[in-house]
């Protein structure tokens, strides 16, 4: 069924290295998204009309534009319009962070809004200062809500990075194609085995993370 090509030479290693490329880009993007997204989320929850207007447009763009379209705009468009040459890897990180920051900020805003005001008031009523109330009462609750959701963002990011082959980055899918092409005569059925293997690799990368996120969500359910 075409699995034998994977055992030839360093093919399996190359495939895993390809996956590592995709994972690296997604982890960098997630890190950026979580940090900047949290900051933006806090700013958004401040109820400033101007900020609200701007972030709303931003979130709507992210909501309706496919990541691949954004990837094309940055990778092909920036070079053309601004005359700067952005590498494919950098374009990917820019686009996925642009998307991830929006998602994260919305999660943070939601988590902040989701804490009932009475929690804050009861902290104050117990004699805590506003800062103490935030540290001991509000933030721990917000974090509990956020952690499962941010972990979930990681799996979504990993899945989305499969798109980077479309702008020419040599990642797992591209490596797979190369292997299939190189062994076209010796293993005509390689497409089945190789693509199934990649399918399974992605599943192995994402499934444990999403299970973990679900587990935390259940554990911390209030």
């Amino acid at each position: 069924m075409g699995f034998e090509v994977l055992l030839k030479g360093s093919n399996l290693i190359r495939l895993l290295e390809g996956l590592a490329v995709a994972l690296k880009i997604s982890l960098i993007s997630v890190a950026i998204s979580i940090v900047l997204g949290t900051i933006l989320g806090v700013i958004m929850s401040m109820d400033n009309k101007v900020i609200k207007g701007i972030t709303r447009v931003y979130l709507e763009i992210v909501r309706i534009m496919p990541q691949l379209v954004l990837l094309f705009i940055v990778y092909f468009g920036a070079t053309k319009v601004m005359g700067i040459n952005i590498s494919a890897e950098a374009s990917s990180v820019i686009v996925f962070s642009f998307w991830g920051i929006a998602e994260m900020s919305d999660l943070v805003r939601g988590a902040l809004k989701g804490i009932p005001a009475i929690q804050y008031e009861s902290g104050i009523a117990l004699g805590l200062s506003p800062v103490q109330t935030n540290i001991y009462v509000i933030i721990p609750q917000v974090i509990r809500r956020l952690i499962p959701l941010s972990i979930n963002l990681i799996t979504r990011m990993i899945k989305t990075t499969s798109l980077i082959m479309m702008i020419g980055i040599v990642e797992v899918l591209k490596v797979g194609q190369q292997i299939i092409e190189a062994n076209r005569n010796s293993s005509p059925n390689a497409a089945f085995g190789v693509f199934l293997t990649i399918f399974v690799l992605y599943f192995i990368a994402c499934w444990p993370i999403s299970r973990f996120s679900k587990y935390l969500e259940r554990k911390w359910e209030t």
């Binding site: 005509p188 059925n189 089945f192 693509f195 199934l196 399918f199």
Partner: peptide, 20 residues
């Protein structure tokens, strides 16, 4: 299917399955 990207699913269905 929730834990794999559509692109990979399509590659498998379009390029892989014909071999089977």
């Amino acid at each position: 299917f929730r834990n794999t990207p559509l692109l990979i699913q399509l590659f498998f269905i379009y390029f892989g399955l014909p071999k089977a």
